[in-house]
């Protein structure tokens, strides 16, 4: 049976423990669960919040395409990706990926692949809001994120 990814785009926070439980509940064939949690980070002490904008419909569709590609590359028993939108304060959660498999390598790789493609091909954008009250700038895409994709190239998801 093909793995069915759990994909959600939501304003509210998520509970990592609950998402892991949901994935492993009533199963005895899962030997490895890798979770990745991306948080809102304030580098210089000037950030009030990040505003996460997304393209409703395409965001979910693109995350699902990436997750299905991961499921074709690795033997995953489950893959969950949750991305938040709206105003997110420093220290709060932005994104969660949970990958489960029989063995650790597939779970690590699946989670890594999901995040690399999510960052560069899922339609989300971050805008900074500063403590000074000023609306800061849009976060710029990083070359290092594109470089991270190259290791997966061959049969790409994009």
């Amino acid at each position: 049976m093909a793995m069915r990814p759990e994909i959600r785009v939501q304003r509210e926070d998520f509970d990592v423990t609950e998402e892991v439980r949901r994935m492993t509940n009533a199963r005895t064939d899962v030997g490895a669960v890798v979770t990745f949690c991306g948080l809102c980070r304030d580098d210089g002490g000037s950030l009030s919040a990040l505003e996460l904008e997304h393209y409703p419909g395409m965001a979910e569709a693109q995350m699902r395409r990436i997750a299905e590609e991961a499921g074709e590359r690795w033997l995953l028993s489950g893959l969950t990706a949750v991305h938040r939108f709206g105003l997110i304060r420093p220290g709060e959660n932005i994104v969660l990926v949970v990958a489960a498999s029989m063995h650790r390598q597939a779970a690590f790789d699946g989670a890594n692949f999901m995040m690399d493609y999510l960052k560069t091909s899922a339609p989300f954008w971050k805008k900074e809001h500063l403590l000074s009250g000023a609306s800061g700038s849009w976060v710029e895409a990083k070359d290092t994120d594109d470089a991270a994709l190259r290791r997966w190239r061959g049969s790409a998801a994009d």
Partner: peptide
Amino acid sequence: VAIDHEHVGHGEPLGTPREIALFPPMTGG
């Protein structure tokens, strides 16, 4: 650019889409 929720290159034909989206490079995650 995305046509009907799928990324497309600038050389691609438009076809007869329901919706065309224009946006900057993505910065989620």
